[in-house]
Amino acid sequence: MFIINCPFCGEREQSEFKAGGEAHIVRPKQPTELSDDQWAEYLFMRKNIKGVQFERWNHAHGCRKWFNMVRDTSNDKIKAVYKMGEKPPVE
C-alpha cells in the first residue's frame, strides 16, 4: 500500500485515494467535429505503460481533490505529485 503525498493534505495512506486512470487526456473542446475514430481515440485508448506513467488520483476520502501523479508502475515508486492544471515535471 503506497503512501501518497496529496498536494493539499500531505502524506496519507493509499486507501484514502481513488485511482483515475491516465492523466493529461484533455476532453475535446468540440466533440461534434470529431470522426468516430478520433472520438474513440479520446474515449477508449489508454497507454497502460510498464514504467513511468502519468496518472490522475483523487483524494476521495479526504479533501476530494483530484491531482496528478507520476508513478513507475513496475515498482510503484511515486516520482512526483502535482495539482491539476500544473505542468508535469520533466524527468
Binding site: K18, G20, V26, R56, N58, R64, K65, W66, M84, G85
Partner: peptide
Amino acid sequence: MSKLEDYLQTEWP
C-alpha cells in the same frame, strides 16, 4: 458526486 467533482475540477475548472 465523484464524477461531477471530477469534471468540475479537471475539465471545467
